[in-house]
């Protein structure tokens, strides 16, 4: 469409630049804080980078904050937790969607509704009883306890179900005429066709696992299973007595880096995953 309104174009860019500044400013300040000493930070709020970046990065990796395990261990725990949740959710969701779409069996609709119900029961509304179940199963302070209760996923199941419904019926019929049974069809046809969806979902689910805070807070009491989110929270809480803001902000920036990098690097897939899981 021909549109010659220079003022509007300038306004558009002005709005967006303001938006980018609003969105980026807190992180900018955090990154600046990474480059100063705690003394500089506590004596004022610098807006320009200093020269302490490398020192702070080294410090944080060797840092053993009070009340939390060493930084590297928390990075490891968070990574492991996010990956297990991501893989677990995808595996159990894709197979249950497969069962619901490609089979007819008694209680199929009931199974669907049971999965649906998880949408209505976030962990926040069942904190103590869920904690008790995990405790009774002996899963406190374990990777299983951190992950297994989180890997039921109605949204991922719905996404796969939706996607399977768009695959032409004839695909499975052709495969059956070609002699493929249910496992072969799943492995040879359905999984390869779902690649993009799986990849897009991986991004969303990795972020989901990485940013968990309440759940690890409930099920871990021993430091060696603390996650990064718990660690940075611990460090930030400790600043009242020992305001090492340079180390805290370095840890915070590192803690948000992996998912942010993934979102930026794989933006197209990420947007697809986000918009489609919610629809």
């Amino acid at each position: 469409m021909v549109e010659n309104r220079p003022f509007l174009s300038i306004l558009t860019h002005a709005v967006l630049i303001a938006g980018v500044i609003i969105v980026a400013f807190p992180v900018y300040v955090a990154i600046i804080a990474m480059t100063h000493t705690d003394v500089t930070l506590n004596s004022g709020a610098p807006l320009l980078p200093g020269g302490e970046l490398v020192a702070n990065l080294i410090a944080v990796w060797t840092f053993d904050p009070p009340g939390a395990p060493p930084f590297w261990l928390m990075v490891w725990n968070s990574t492991l937790m996010a990956l297990i949740i991501m893989i677990g959710k995808i595996v159990i969701s894709i197979v249950s969607a497969y069962a619901i779409v490609y089979f007819r069996f008694p209680f199929r609709t009931l199974a669907f509704w049971v999965i649906f119900i998880t949408l209505m029961l976030p962990v926040e509304v069942r904190i103590i009883p869920t904690y008790e179940v995990v405790a009774n199963l002996g899963m406190l302070n374990s990777y299983a306890g951190l992950t297994v209760p989180l890997i039921a996923s109605a949204t991922a199941t719905f996404l796969f179900r939706q996607f399977f419904m768009t695959i032409p019926d004839e695909m499975m019929e052709a495969a059956r005429v070609d002699g493929a049974g249910p496992l072969k069809f799943f492995r040879d046809i359905l999984l390869p066709l779902s690649r993009t969806n799986i990849a897009a979902l991986c991004i969303i689910l990795f972020i989901y696992g990485w940013v968990q805070y309440l759940w690890p807070l409930l099920v871990t009491t021993r430091e060696e299973h603390f996650t990064l989110m718990m660690g940075v929270r611990q460090m930030a809480g400790a600043q009242k007595v020992d305001p090492q803001w340079n180390i805290i902000m370095t840890a915070v920036v590192l803690a948000m880096l992996p998912p942010v990098v993934i979102v930026i690097a794989m933006q197209r897939l990420f947007v697809k995953g986000l918009v489609e899981t919610e629809k």
């Binding site: 032409p168 004839e170 695909m171 019929e173 052709a174 046809i189 690649r195």
Partner: peptide, 10 residues
């Protein structure tokens, strides 16, 4: 032979 061919796209 199917109407939409049902070729395996991958």
């Amino acid at each position: 032979v199917f109407q939409n061919y049902a070729l395996y796209p991958h």
